[in-house]
């Protein structure tokens, strides 16, 4: 299920503005990869380029290659909708569908794609996904209540359940804990540790302790100045990044001497 991602010479543009330049990296299957770096350096842009979500913004485009298990995501015959079915995403702010119940939110991935699923299969899937997101015990008695009635942390786990319900190969998380309290953050981190048994996870975070806690590999993005494109400065095992980084800029950022 989990797949390997190879990125080579990836440039990402918004119109004429080059947001990210020359990224080369390989993401191992069944691992957690953290992306850190200052705001505006292109971490989220890069993450969104991995499942062609950045194309939603008018004028955005990429040059270079993103290959998942031999399949080029940006090949001319690849449908971005198919790509997104394989590569799920969790956003910074919890965004459950306000018109749907908790159950329907989890089922949304299949329902919205008009996949015919029997009621019992759907029940199973919802239960499995909610259990996978550590939310089942909290909501099993109120599956028909609106998803937006949950607390922020529960909503975020609901969004994770929704994302894993479509059985993606890869899960992208864009600062999934930045709106959560420490306890919910811990719950999400525990969840990520469990999920990496099945999925390849890429997480963008501003929380360096979080990157150090959960990830095997860390990428550090930086930019030289305002208006310059962001670049991948260093990509190494997490232990090495946080103890003995190759680059001076990484060490400065991690130790707080940045900028």
């Amino acid at each position: 299920m989990a797949k390997r991602i190879d990125v080579s010479d990836l440039d990402i543009y918004y119109g004429n503005f080059k947001a990210v330049e020359g990224v080369n990296l390989s993401i191992e299957p069944r691992s957690i990869t953290a992306l850190i770096g200052p705001s505006g350096c292109g971490k989220s842009t890069f993450l969104r380029a991995l499942n062609r979500m950045h194309e939603v913004i008018p004028g955005a485009r990429v040059e270079g290659k993103v290959v998942i298990e031999g399949q080029d995501l940006y090949g001319s015959d690849v449908d971005p909708v198919d790509v997104r079915r394989q590569i799920g995403m969790v956003f910074q702010r919890p965004n459950p569908f306000p018109t749907m119940s908790i159950y329907d939110n989890v089922a949304a991935g299949l329902r919205l794609n008009a996949k015919k699923t029997s009621k019992s299969d759907m029940d199973d899937l919802v239960e499995r996904s909610l259990k996978g997101a550590n939310l089942w015990n909290e909501v099993k008695d109120r599956l028909n209540r609106p998803g937006s009635g949950l607390s922020g942390g529960q909503q975020q786990r609901l969004c994770i359940a929704r994302a894993i319900a479509i059985q993606p190969e890869v899960l992208l998380m864009d600062e999934p804990c930045s709106a959560l309290d420490p306890i919910s953050t811990l719950a999400v981190e525990d969840l990520m540790m469990e999920l990496k048994e099945q999925f390849t996870i890429v997480i963008v975070t501003h929380n360096m302790q979080q990157a150090a806690r959960v990830s095997e590999t860390t990428g550090f993005f930086n930019l030289n100045g305002v208006g310059q494109p962001g670049r991948l400065i260093e990509y190494n095992p997490t232990e090495k990044i946080f103890s003995n980084p190759d680059e001076k800029a990484t060490e400065d950022y991690i130790s707080g001497r940045f900028g």
Binding site: N51, M53, R84, M89, F91, R93, F97, N113, A163, I166
Partner: peptide, 16 residues
Amino acid sequence: ELREAAYALGVPKWRT
């Protein structure tokens, strides 16, 4: 965000 959430689930634009 709701549109993006749907796109991220692999839902085509018209269904979103």
